[in-house]
Computed example of a mutant assay.
Amino acid sequence: MPELTLLAWAALAAAAVIVGVSKAALPGANTLAIALFATALPAKESTGALLVLLIVGDGFALWLHRRHARLRALLPLIPAVLAGLLLGTAFLAFASDAWTRRVIGAILLLVVGVTLWRRRRAREETEAPGAGLLAAAAYGTLGGFTTMVANAAGPVMSMYFLAARFPMREFLGTAAWFFAGINLAKVPFSVALGIIDGQTLLMDLMLVPGVVAGALVGRWLLDRLDQRTFERIVIALTILGAVYLLAA
């Protein structure tokens, strides 16, 4: 078990609750969990520790939203995501903690810019033939890389699903299947890189109740959200999390 201060444990516990809420109702909230984990733990170790909790949260998300998924929409993303995972694995094999932190901050800053740009153009753009595949390739590659390096694909893919105009329930159902698959695919890479080990699993075991509590809170919130409020909260949480991590 890592030796952590009481404040660090409090940050990790809060992040675990946020993971549960994000998986059940508010995908953008994951960025806050990334920031808290990266603040409490060394950058690389934070990636592995958070991944285990995300997988636990994925189980709740699938249980809640499995009937609303649009699985066919995920097919164009698969090759690009795999390419991004390989790029992210190669980066983690050579990058120091300091560089990993800088890249996490830069990635989330990029996501904020993409978020604002896509939202501004979403209502006025008419995509040409092939533009959908181009968007899938761009978001998929960036999503694969960010999820491997920082578990930060949530903001990237949230913007992809919003730009594709998914209704709230289909958004959550499709995202649940996407992240369940991608997070499980990352486990062998993470173990090989040494960022998931016995200590990681023991620490995460202490934090799982927070994920469960967060998922229950998220389920309660879900029945009280409409589409417009949902989209605004996703965008606001993405921006807030990115700014917090950069400032930290």
Results as ranks from 00 to 15, higher is better:
L6Y: 12
L7M: 15
A10V: 11
V17A: 07
I18H: 13
V19Q: 03
V19K: 00
K23M: 06
A24G: 03
G28Y: 10
N30F: 06
L32S: 11
I34Q: 04
T39P: 08
L41S: 07
A43F: 09
E45V: 02
T47V: 02
A49T: 00
V52E: 07
V52G: 07
V52S: 10
G57A: 05
G59F: 14
F60K: 03
L62R: 09
L62W: 09
R67A: 10
H68A: 13
A69N: 07
R72V: 10
L75W: 15
P79R: 06
L82Q: 07
G84I: 00
L92E: 00
A93W: 04
F94C: 14
D97A: 03
A98M: 00
W99D: 05
T100N: 03
T100E: 02
R101P: 04
R102G: 03
I104F: 03
I104R: 01
A106E: 09
I107S: 00
L108T: 09
L109D: 01
V111F: 02
V111I: 01
V111N: 10
V114N: 06
T115P: 00
R118N: 05
R119P: 01
R120T: 04
R123Y: 13
E127P: 03
E127F: 11
P129V: 10
P129C: 01
L134V: 11
A136V: 10
A136T: 07
A138M: 02
A138R: 02
G144K: 00
G144L: 00
A152N: 09
A152L: 15
A152H: 06
A153Y: 04
G154C: 05
M157H: 08
F161R: 06
F166Q: 04
P167L: 10
M168T: 12
R169L: 11
R169E: 12
E170F: 04
E170D: 13
L172K: 15
L172G: 14
F178V: 02
F179E: 13
A180E: 01
I182V: 09
A185D: 01
A185P: 01
K186A: 05
P188I: 12
V191Y: 02
V191W: 00
L193R: 10
G194N: 07
I195R: 14
I196V: 14
I196S: 01
D197T: 06
Q199Y: 07
L202N: 08
M203Q: 08
R219T: 05
L221V: 08
L221Y: 06
L221H: 03
T229M: 14
F230W: 06
E231N: 14
R232P: 05
I233N: 14
I235A: 12
A236Q: 13
L240I: 15
G241A: 06
A242V: 04
V243H: 15
L245M: 14
